[in-house]
């Protein structure tokens, strides 16, 4: 059985409208979860929302009814602390009911602060400690190559996360094996937990680093749905190397008082801030 995009594929302008609507849905769901739990990482949820919406509603092939279908495209949320956005996109994609999002980080909830593949469908590997997603993605891509499968593997990393050396071990292997069906997306919001990435342990020139490790690199606006769909949806058969998409994003994107503000890395809203944000997220 071959998988098709779920939900049903749409094309052209309709597709961009769908992704835009889903990205907004992710932000609203995620911020509601963070508000209710008074826990979470909303800044990174918002910077990643458009990437997630593009993947799940315009690029990946999967079937929520058969979450471990051997031919599925894989997505790994390496920035595992951004479960507000990740659980929201999984719910919107149909892996579990949206009502379950209300249990986020509640006692004994399946929606742990960091994702657990044994708790919920649609999660490929347990992340949380940074620098774990890309090595696993490399293994998945090698397995696909060995088995002659055409699934694609996507992994979303934070940018501060790239300070972890394990990423570069994996990047070297991805380049060495020319894993053309592997795509790394860097959520390049330029802020990490405590400060700007470039003031902490600078990453630039980030594109050159990935090129040096054997990747084809695309730098795009990570909130431009058309660009995301175009670059992420391109047929990997046309490449002989893995793809790195540096998605230039804004931490807290979508809410005026949160944008590019490091305090919203794991800041949580009070009632007034929540009401203001929900007014803006329409």
């Amino acid at each position: 059985m071959s998988l098709t995009l779920a939900p049903a594929p749409v094309s052209g302008a309709d597709r961009i409208d769908l992704v835009r609507a889903k990205a907004l849905g992710i932000r609203r769901c995620a911020f509601t979860m963070v508000h209710d739990a008074q826990l979470g990482h909303p800044g990174g949820d918002f910077s990643a929302a458009d990437v997630l919406a593009s993947l799940y509603f315009g690029v990946m092939r999967y079937d929520p009814a058969e979450p471990r279908h051997p031919d599925r495209d894989r997505f790994i949320m390496s920035k595992g602390h951004c479960t507000g956005a990740f659980y929201s996109v999984l719910a919107l994609a149909g892996y579990f009911p949206e009502a379950q999002l209300k249990t986020y980080m509640q006692p004994l909830s399946k929606l742990n602060g960091h994702p657990n593949r044994n708790y919920l469908p649609g999660i490929e590997t347990n992340t949380g400690p940074l620098g774990h997603g890309l090595p696993v993605a490399v293994g998945i891509a090698i397995a696909g190559k060995l088995s002659g499968k055409d699934y694609r593997t996507f992994v979303l990393t934070g940018d501060g996360e790239l300070q972890e050396g394990s990423n570069w071990e994996a990047a070297m292997a991805a380049g060495h094996h020319r894993l053309n069906r592997l795509t790394v997306i860097v959520d390049r919001n330029r802020l990490q937990q405590g400060d700007r990435t470039e003031s902490t342990n600078g990453l630039d020139p980030l594109d050159d680093k990935w090129r040096a490790f054997g990747f084809h690199v695309e730098m795009i606006d990570g909130h431009d749905h058309a660009a995301l769909l175009d670059v992420l949806g391109a047929d990997p058969a046309g490449r002989d190397k893995p793809l790195c998409v540096i998605a230039n994003t804004i931490k807290g994107k979508g809410v005026s008082f949160m944008e590019d503000n490091v305090s919203w890395h794991h800041g949580v809203p009070n009632a007034d801030q929540f009401a203001q944000a929900m007014k803006e997220l329409i």
Binding site: P70, E124, T125, G131, H132, P135, V138, G139, G144, A170
Partner: peptide, 21 residues
């Protein structure tokens, strides 16, 4: 053979298992 890169080695192992190996 991932070379001298043990963190990646174990992660790659987990990924290979995910891919049915």
């Amino acid at each position: 053979n991932v070379g001298i890169a043990e963190q990646n080695m174990v992660g790659v192992g987990a990924g290979l298992a995910n891919g049915g190996k």
